[in-house]
Design a protein around this nucleic acid. Structure first.
Lengths: 219, 219
DNA sequence: ACAACAATCTAATAATTACTGGATTGATTA
DNA sequence: TAATCAATCCAGTAATTATTAGATTGTTGT
């Protein structure tokens, strides 16, 4: 059989369709946004700072690769990931990037806030403390994203409302803020705001997708 | 801070560098080959049926993304994956492709050989039987790849030598052949050859990289 | 039925990327 | 030292992909 070559080419080409989707920065950003729950094209475009037309074109690619599904909701069209496996591949991909690309490591370090020594860095003790109420886990994403999924014991205060709602937070216990993931700056912004206001606070690098993936691996 | 946008763009762009590498069929094939162990440019080019120049160009991309390392060995240059995480992402990527792309599923079904009812499909019982010698696990890749890494209890007979070495195999026990992975046709070729010759035989879809990844998840 | 709106489609151009041929580098062998 | 070999570099063209503008499709509200 000399068409073994032809078959192989066909197979790898199919896999490359997935790779192509992950080869554009904006598409990656859209995937990360969709990891936070279903969204309309308009919302996605706004959050990613691109035109609706361009967002639509990128989403078209995502759909062609069967990585997202759509549903009409009145005038809007809702996009959602076609499965948890898509979010997982996003996490695996950016983890490998962080592992291998020094440029990325340095860029991430630049935006990180100093860790607070009262806040544990490993999740097991963090969860133990959260369960006991010794630490407040704060979700600073928009409420809809919190409602779609959030970390255990997390409380929701969107970053825009944070300044107005400081009174809801305790000053005697550390506050761990998290957001969409390592490329979302809301958690670090929240943490530095809280510190300025006299709270003990730290930012968590992981979002829900990252958390859930490593949960499974540990279990 | 209005440069939040600039920072984000930079971060996603870095991750997209990894995606770009995975967006070309031939680069994927090279990655899979490198999952089997270190190889020279010439070997890689031959196995992937491309010119050495083109192979060199693709490998250049892989190296630019820090996914492979090189080492000079006399006249040749050896390429190897920069870490297990690279092989893992390859497995995760093609798994997602198999999960989402119907075209790929059908193409894979077309090349699959009928399963043998004496050969278990889940790896735990397969390993139990292999340990007891109730089944022969046969690595049909080139010997060097077998030497670099192989499945537990596996025996090596490269596919080219298989016809000459049939006497080494038992007729009373089933033989499970495996190769580089689901896109490598050596295992299915071996299994159908063995069946023609009166052996009980089946092909295993997974290669070493796939096996090792799912091992860890189960453990 | 019509205006307003969300989103897509189509087509055109700009920007990247893939591939090939010719020259070049570094190491080995005669 | 010259010849050979593996591999890369460079430059040019072919092929894809990204992006934007303009027209179009559904849907809602008046």
């Amino acid at each position: 059989m000399k068409d073994a070559r032809r078959i192989k080419d066909l197979l790898y080409e199919q896999v490359a369709r997935i790779g192509k989707v992950f080869s554009s920065p904006k598409r990656l950003e859209l995937i990360e946004l969709l990891c936070q729950g279903e969204k309309t094209v308009e919302t996605l475009a706004q959050e990613a700072s691109i035109s609706m037309k361009l967002a639509s074109a990128h989403l078209r690619e995502l759909r062609a690769a069967h990585l997202v599904e759509t549903e009409r909701q009145g005038k809007n069209i809702l996009y959602r990931l076609a499965g948890k496996a898509v979010a997982d591949l996003w996490v695996h991909t950016h983890s490998l990037a962080e592992d291998r690309l020094v440029e990325l490591q340095m860029a991430l370090q630049k935006i990180a806030v100093q860790p607070d020594d009262l806040v544990p860095s490993d999740r097991e003790t963090l969860m133990k403390m959260a369960r006991r109420g010794e630490v407040v886990v704060l979700d600073v994403r928009p409420v809809e994203e919190y409602l779609a999924a959030h970390l255990p014991f997390a409380r929701s205060i969107p970053i825009d409302e944070l300044r107005q709602r400081l009174a809801e937070l305790p000053k005697d216990r550390p506050i761990v803020a998290y957001c969409r993931g390592p490329y979302c700056l809301m958690a670090v912004d929240a943490a530095s705001l809280l510190r300025k206001e006299g709270f003990r606070s730290a930012g968590l690098r992981d979002g829900v997708a990252e958390w859930e993936l490593t949960e499974i691996r540990q279990a």
